[in-house]
Nucleic acid binder design. Structure first.
Lengths: 334, 334
DNA sequence: GTGAAAGCGCTAACAC
DNA sequence: GTGTTAGCGCTTTCAC
C-alpha cells in the first residue's frame, strides 16, 4: 500500500480510503490510485485490515459435521450468501459435544476476530457452542429450539412432520411408527410433530425407535419393524434412514408401499430415484443457511434487533406411501 | 498480552515466547505466565500474530463445490487433518471455471495470508485455480492429472476403473457401456481406465454417454440405454449417476442385474442399501484430504520437496452386477 | 533467559 | 478531500 501511495503521489490513508470505498476521495485521485494498484497487482492485506479495524470480512461457521445432507447444504447456503456479500468463510468442526472441545473450538474462532458466527444448532455440540460465543460477536443460530436472545433461522419441521404423519393417517393407517435420528433435546421437532398428529387423531402412539446417523442403522430397524405385524406405516427422521429402513423391510421380504408405507424427511437428492420413490418433506437447508447469513449481516456493523425467521417444509408425496391394503398383506401373514 | 505481561511481571516478548512454545523461557517464568493468562482468559489474537509473523495458522481450501459426495468427504478430511495439526480452515468456493471468478477467489484467499492452500482439482475451476496460487504459498492439489511441480495426493481411479470394467467383462459381458460425469479434461481417469480394459480385451468400445452431476440426469440415460438391446453392462462415473441409471432402467421395465448389470464408482454410503446393492469402487476421499494436508504441512515452514501420493480404490462387488443371462432377457426381447 | 525497540500493513482520529 | 500522527496486538531482531 505504501508503494501504491508513493507512485500515485498520495498518502497511505488515501489509498486506504480508495479501497474501503469511502466517498471522500476525488474521482481523479481514486482513478489514479486504482490504476497504479492494478499495475502493481496490489491486494490489500485482509490480516492487517482486520487488526487495524478490529473487524474482518470473515464469517465463521461452527458445525458438528460437514458432510451429512442437511449440514452440507446449510454450509453451502452460508458460504454462498457470505461470498455474495464479500465475506470469506472459516469453518470449525466440533466432533463431539464435549465441553472442553466446544470451548476450544469457539475460542479458536473468536481469536480470528471474525465478523460474525453462524452456529448449526443441529446437535448437542451446536447447542453448547451457542452459549459460548463471546457476546460481543454477531451471532446467529440455524435450526433447533427457539432462542430468546439470538437471531435464528429455522425450518418448521414440527409442523411438517405433523402434516406428513397426518397424511399417513388419512391414507387409512391405524397408526404411524417413528424412527428418530440422534437429537440433542428430549424431543426433537420431527418427533414432536409426529406425536402431535397421532394425539390429535386419537391414534395409538408407539415408542419411537432410535437410529444413528448412519443410513445403515436403518436396516436393522427395518428388520425389527418387519417382524411386527402392527406396523403398516413408518415415518423416519430423515431420508437416508428411511432408505435403510426400506432396505431392512426388503430383506425381510416386505414390499413398500404394499406391505408397509415409508416416509422420510428432507428430500435428499436420491429420494426421488429410489424404488419406490420416497415420500418426504422438502427441507431447504441451503436457503436456511442463506437466511441465517442475511440475519447475521443485518447485525454486523449495525445494532439491528434479534430476528427470527421460519419456513415450513413442503410435503412431497411419492410412491413409498399408500393406503394399507389388507388383501396384499395376506402373503406376509400366512 | 500486555496485561498478562504486567501482572506476571515480565515483558510482552516473554509472554509471546511462552505462547509460541519457544524453549528459551525458564520453567518458572513459563508457569507464572500461563497461570496469569489462564486467569485472565487470555487468548492470543490470531490476526495480530499473522500480521506480525507473516504466517497464520489457517489453511485455505479452494473447491468447485462443497456438497457432492467426493467434494464433501475430501473437505472433511482436510478439515480433520488441519484441525488436528492446529490449523483452521478457510473455505472458498468457485462456482464456475470463469477466469475472473477463479482469479478473484484465489486472491481473496491469498489476502488472508494463509499458511497454505489445498486445491480440489476435481474440475475445471480447480485446474485453473492451481495455476493462479501465488508461488510463494505452500500448495497441494487433490486428485486430477499428475502435476510436475506441485505436491499432490490422488486416487488412482484409472486403475480402479480398469479393474471394474475387467470384472464386468470376465462376468461374460461382450462389452461395457460407460456413463461419464463432467470432467475438466479430454478423458478423465475413470473413462481412460474403462477404455483401456476394453482395448486390452479386444471388446467393442461404445461411445461414452454424458451425465451431469445431478443424479437425475442418469434417469434419462438409463431410459436411453434400455432401448438398446446391445447394452448388457454399464459402468457409471459415480454411484449417484448409477442410481439414476438404475432408476431409468427400472422405468423401462428392465431388471438389474438380470437384464443389465450396473456398476458405480465411489462407494457412496447409500450404495450398499440400494436394491440391488451397487457394485462399485471405494474411493476414500476423506483420506485423500488427510493425505493432502500431510503433504501440505510438510512444506509449511520447511522447504520439503514436492511429493506425490497415490492410492488405488478397492473394488466392492455387490448385487448389481452379474453374468448376462440370455434366458432371463428373453421377455425383453419378445 | 529476558527486555527494549522496531515494525508487520493497515485504519482511525484529527487537523488542515 | 487529503495528510499527519497513532496505534491495532503481536513477533522479531538485537542487546544485555
Amino acid at each position: 500500500m505504501a508503494d501504491v501511495a508513493r507512485l500515485a503521489g498520495v498518502s497511505v490513508p488515501t489509498v486506504s480510503r480508495v479501497f474501503s470505498g469511502a466517498t471522500s476521495v476525488t474521482p481523479e485521485t481514486r482513478e489514479r490510485v486504482e490504476r497504479i494498484a492494478a499495475q502493481l497487482r496490489f491486494r490489500p492485506s485482509a490480516t492487517a485490515r482486520a487488526l487495524a479495524s478490529g473487524r474482518s470480512a470473515v464469517i465463521a461457521v461452527l458445525a458438528g459435521n460437514t458432510t451429512r445432507y442437511g449440514y452440507a447444504e446449510a454450509i453451502r447456503g452460508v458460504e454462498e450468501a457470505a461470498r455474495t456479500a464479500g465475506f470469506s468463510v472459516l469453518i470449525a468442526v466440533m466432533e463431539s459435544p464435549d465441553d472442553d472441545l466446544v470451548e476450544q473450538t469457539v475460542s479458536m474462532v473468536a481469536n480470528h476476530s471474525v465478523a460474525g458466527v453462524v452456529v448449526l444448532k443441529f446437535d448437542a455440540a451446536g447447542v453448547r457452542a451457542l452459549s459460548r460465543v463471546p457476546s460481543h460477536l454477531p451471532l446467529v443460530a440455524l435450526a433447533g429450539e427457539k432462542e430468546r436472545e439470538i437471531s435464528q433461522a429455522v425450518l418448521d419441521e414440527s409442523e411438517a412432520a405433523e402434516r406428513l404423519t397426518r397424511h399417513l393417517l388419512e391414507l387409512g393407517h391405524e397408526t404411524v411408527h417413528h424412527v428418530r435420528v440422534p437429537s440433542s433435546v428430549r424431543e426433537d421437532g420431527r418427533t414432536a410433530g409426529w406425536r402431535r398428529a397421532l394425539e390429535k387423531a386419537g391414534a395409538p402412539i408407539p415408542d419411537p425407535l432410535d437410529a444413528s446417523w448412519r443410513p445403515r442403522s436403518g436396516v436393522r430397524i427395518g428388520l425389527t419393524l418387519a417382524s411386527d405385524p402392527s406396523v403398516s406405516a413408518v415415518f423416519c427422521g430423515n431420508d437416508e434412514i428411511a432408505m435403510g429402513v426400506m432396505r431392512g423391510l426388503f430383506e425381510a421380504g416386505l414390499r413398500v408401499p404394499q406391505d408397509v408405507s415409508v416416509a422420510g424427511f428432507d428430500d435428499h437428492p436420491l429420494a426421488e430415484l429410489w424404488v419406490p420413490a420416497l415420500t418426504t418433506a422438502r427441507q431447504d437447508f441451503a436457503e436456511l443457511g442463506r437466511r441465517g447469513v442475511r440475519l447475521l449481516l443485518s447485525r454486523i456493523g449495525v445494532r439491528a434487533p434479534v430476528e427470527f425467521s421460519s419456513e415450513t417444509p413442503d410435503l412431497i408425496l411419492r410412491a413409498s406411501t399408500a393406503p394399507p391394503d389388507e388383501a396384499r398383506r395376506r402373503p406376509r401373514q400366512s
